[in-house]
């Protein structure tokens, strides 16, 4: 797409959107947000980038194929559930780490790792589909 305005704005816009998507992902535990929404925002960022800069350039920017990202995310989510097995709990039981410097920080946990896995799956799968549709004959 040869729109000067879009091409100028895209680097900043995409960077902001990616940052925002991670923010939404991480705050999801206590406020509206989470892996699904974050993932969708992240995917939109790449979609915009693809429209503005073209498919080849978007593939380069992503470095790895999108479906790999989805696979890694799925594996990540599943592995975060395995952790609890070592503590004698059932698969996918949340495990929490209360660091000594701030015992009230009730955040660092396998649950957040799981949410990151969700984020990666959504980003990977949707970007993969978008790329597939962008691919011209």
């Amino acid at each position: 797409m040869n729109s000067l305005i879009l091409r100028t704005a895209v680097p900043a816009l995409v960077g902001l959107m990616l940052l925002f998507s991670i923010y939404v992902l991480l705050r999801g535990h206590n406020e509206p947000g989470g892996g699904f929404i974050g993932g969708l925002i992240g995917a939109s960022a790449f979609a915009i980038y693809t429209i503005a800069e073209g498919l080849a350039s978007a593939r380069r920017a992503l470095i790895v194929p999108p479906i790999t990202i989805a696979g890694v995310g799925l594996l990540f989510a599943a592995l975060s559930g395995v952790v609890s097995l070592f503590f004698g709990d059932a698969f996918l039981t949340g495990q929490w780490w209360f660091p000594a410097f701030n015992p009230d920080l009730k955040y660092l946990s396998t649950v957040v790792l799981f949410d990151i896995g969700v984020y990666l799956v959504v980003v990977g799968a949707i970007v993969g589909i978008a790329f597939a549709l962008e691919e011209r004959e």
């Binding site: 206590n30 699904f36 799925l74 949340g94 649950v111 799981f114 959504v122």
Partner: peptide, 29 residues
Amino acid sequence: YGRNIVNVILVDFRALDTLGEIAVVAIAG
């Protein structure tokens, strides 16, 4: 330890369901 109940249901209480669902998303890809 989560204040967003919807998110806690998704990633903690019913995480196994969510795991299945993101598997569906990945399979669609």
